[in-house]
């Protein structure tokens, strides 16, 4: 091959792969690309036995290989997503609260109307669940109409548990904590709290400190 360090030689003067049908035993680059896409199957002897086709296929495969890594290298070479960058994006989104439905609360004065939003109740559930050591709450769903007082409601939460701790015990504590907080802050008629641990995560530094008893 040619010396890549020699900028004096124009590209057109270099020995390059012949990629026209006349050079490729009558096949086209388009055909060879499709053949490569198909995993070189079904085998086409005319392509497989042509040395020039094999060279071209190898070159196409190399090109694809580089293409596949292109974005990863771009990301590695790009400046890291710093706080300014992230906050500029978040500020422009205007992350409106996801209030959801209104959940009524009784008020001593019959004329006054008091509600909690569904979003606020989800927040209460998240905080209650997160307070259990090693647990991170994910999605939280209600079934039953939370906007109707007294309606039976079941709560289902997804959670991720830290690696190395008993999951059943943690899930029980999550259930209890959520139940307690919902009792304290809402008038929802909660019939079930279903906790699904869908993932195990590794302890982050703070959790690792907790586990080691470090203050």
């Amino acid at each position: 091959m040619t010396n890549p360090q020699d900028p004096a030689t124009p590209a057109s003067d270099r020995a390059v792969l012949a990629l026209e049908p006349g050079d490729l035993s009558g096949h086209t680059i388009d055909e060879l690309s499709d053949y490569l896409d198909a995993g070189r199957l079904p085998a086409n002897p005319s392509i497989d036995q042509s040395a020039s086709c094999q060279l071209a296929l190898d070159a196409l495969a190399r090109l694809r290989e580089v293409a596949r890594t292109l974005l990863d290298v771009d990301v590695r070479n790009a400046p890291a997503a710093d706080d300014n960058w992230v906050h500029r994006i978040l500020d422009n989104i205007g992350l409106e609260a996801r209030a959801g439905r209104d959940i009524p609360l009784r008020h001593p004065a019959p004329s006054a109307e008091l509600v909690l939003t569904e979003g606020a109740v989800r927040g209460i559930i998240r905080t209650a669940g997160d307070s259990i050591d090693g647990i991170l709450i994910g999605r939280c769903r209600f079934s039953g109409d939370v906007s109707v007082p007294g309606e039976p409601i079941s709560v289902s939460v997804e959670a991720s548990a830290v690696w190395g701790k008993p999951i059943m015990a943690a899930a029980d504590r999550v259930r209890q904590a959520i139940h307690r907080e919902l009792q304290t802050h809402t008038e929802l008629n909660v019939t079930d709290i279903d906790v699904t641990v869908h993932d195990i995560h590794m302890a982050d530094d703070a959790e690792a400190d907790d586990q080691a008893g470090v203050r």
């Binding site: 997160d130 307070s131 991170l136 999605r139 939280c140 991720s160 995560h201 703070a206």
Partner: peptide, 25 residues
């Protein structure tokens, strides 16, 4: 809240956890 629960760092959380929480606001 009755107790000041610790704010758990989320940097190592799974995608599913993060997407679920973000979906909930």
């Amino acid at each position: 809240m009755t107790t000041a629960a610790p704010v758990r760092p989320l940097e190592n959380a799974h995608d599913r956890t993060l997407a679920g929480r973000a979906a909930d606001g």
